[in-house]
Design a protein around this nucleic acid. Structure first.
Lengths: 153, 153
DNA sequence: TTAAGTGCAAAAGCTTTGCGGGTAG
DNA sequence: CTACCCGCAAAGCTTTTGCACTTAA
């Protein structure tokens, strides 16, 4: 990510913290800066390592808590990564998923339109596509209600 | 899943085991039967509970090992669920992923066509979609080579 | 000043590994 | 018979929690 848009993201984050009465700490700033500089969908552990070299002695807990905080504020997202995930799916035919960004609920979803996508050319990566899934990301029924309650406070 | 296609999947599994010189054990059969009867992308733990009630005393380890075995044989798949061992993504704008079914590699992928999908109606689930991602699943460069080597043995 | 955040330590949750004994083919 | 698989126990790795101390605003 180029330096100027990085700066911008950090300013955005600072503003949001202020608006919500949350603190813009050194730890949070460095963790955000670090994540914006890493690619390949880093795990919490990899982020911790990178952060620790800039802020020796930072607690793992702080990194975990801050990452979840960044996701809640919408500055970064969680990737739906299949590693070590331990969710199995007996359905091998094409189907899609609704994924709740709040509670991670994962609902099967059928749609003829989505079943007929033209598979794009992936030869630049020398990658053979066998099938695909679409993840529709958003808010489930339940989390929508919870938010409405909170907002009306 | 209806009973006849379940039977068929189990027969397929038995055949594949034979072909590969692997054992078709009671444990493997019951675990497969059980997974085919569960929905909602069960976790290993939920599968273990269901299996344990049919085969009291079965070891957790066996369930874990068998599930991975079923994935390797292609009878079931792993869902890309945003659960444990979180992966974070600094990119919040729309983009997609190539997902290797062998090694779980997860590669950013851009495609204008995929960026312009019509978001289908999800009101039946009372679910609010904010964005989406397409996962193109298949074999990465590296695993393709590995397979070619193995196949030529 | 004070509510929010951090560090520490411990627990909790999930998965893998090594090994001796058991069993399908 | 024997290679493959199972159960057990222990370790390993990732994440969460409770609490006292620190700090941004």
């Amino acid at each position: 990510m180029d330096a100027s848009s990085k700066e911008e993201r950090i300013r955005d984050f600072k503003r949001i913290c202020r608006e919500r009465g949350e603190r813009f700490t050194v730890q949070r700033r460095i963790i955000l800066e670090t994540v914006l500089g890493l690619d390949n969908h880093p795990s919490a552990d990899r982020i911790y390592d990178a952060v620790e070299s800039r802020l020796p002695g930072i607690a793992r807990t702080t990194v975990y808590r801050t990452l979840e905080h960044l996701v809640r504020t919408g500055i970064i997202t969680k990737a739906c990564h299949p590693g070590r995930v331990a969710r199995y799916d007996p359905r091998t035919e094409i189907h899609h998923h609704l994924v709740c960004l709040d509670c991670n609920e994962f609902i099967d979803f059928e749609d003829d339109g989505l079943n007929q996508l033209r598979i794009p050319d992936t030869s630049a990566f020398n990658f053979d596509v066998s099938d695909y899934r679409v993840q529709l990301r958003g808010l489930c029924q339940h989390c929508k209600k919870t938010r409405e309650k909170e907002d009306s406070k």
